[in-house]
Amino acid sequence: MLLGLGIVLATPGSWAQSGSPTVVTQHQLQVVEMRLDRVERLLDSGALTEMLQGVETLQGEVRRLRGQVEQMENDLRNLQARQRDQFRNLDERLSLVEGGAATRQAPEPDPPPDPGEPLPDADEQGAYEAAFDVLMGGDYGQAISRLERFMERYPDGVYAANALYWLAEAKYASGDYEGALVDFEAVRSRFPDSDKAADSLLKVGYSQFELGNAEAAREALEAVVAGYPGTTLSRLAQERLRRLDGQ
């Protein structure tokens, strides 16, 4: 209040020179006093202190929320990384089942059974499932023998397309890329409407790649990419094309 009064009293000459009447000067003093009174009451009431404390509280809450957001972003990045790893592992397993098992050493095949020996199962489905189980067990030599005999008995059967495809896979996995190529192409020519036709086109590219026929491999793989965009087959073909370009 004294400061305000000092300011007001320090300038009487200016008011006198301007010709302002005395009543105006007194009014101004009253206004200053009222404003100072309000400031003093505000300070005494602790309102400013509460406001400052409220600001500090809000700032603390903002910092806490910011820390939570950063933690959530970090957790999200970790989750995405784990999902990518799981997806890659799943793809590797899928590729292995679809023919990537060629990198493994095939076990010594059992002696082929007597050609005159009947298939273990009398019906087509049973014979197919028995041969498929042998293939999934990793005995490629026995699987090849059973699937070849299946194709001789049921060349146009319900499971013929699948049996011929898995026969080609068994040959591919055992390192017989030429035999696999012949059978994969046979699937496409004999059973073009089968759901194994597209897979066989990919494996034609794989077989040509293993045989060192770069141009033929590229032609088949690019046909997969063009014909089946956005599918696992297309992605696998693109991966093999990258390997082909890296040679």
Rank of each mutant, 00 (worst) to 15 (best):
E239P: 01
Y128E: 03
D183Y: 01
R63M: 08
A16T: 09
D123E: 06
L236K: 13
A131H: 03
L241I: 13
G141L: 03
L167I: 04
N162D: 13
R82H: 07
E152I: 04
L244Q: 13
G141W: 05
Q68P: 02
R88G: 00
E33N: 03
A143L: 03
S95R: 14
R240M: 14
Q59W: 03
Q208P: 11
V23R: 10
D156R: 09
A143M: 01
G137D: 08
L96K: 10
R242L: 14
E219A: 15
R153S: 02
R77I: 00
V158E: 15
M51Q: 13
V69F: 06
L135Q: 03
S145V: 06
A180Y: 08
N213A: 15
R63T: 08
G116H: 03
Q28W: 11
G46S: 04
G246R: 15
R218M: 13
V182Y: 05
P155Y: 01
R41E: 10
L244F: 09
A223V: 12
L76V: 07
N162G: 11
A237M: 05
L236I: 10
N162Q: 10
A106V: 08
G205L: 04
G116D: 13
V224Y: 08
A180L: 06
Q17A: 15
F209C: 08
A160E: 03
V32K: 02
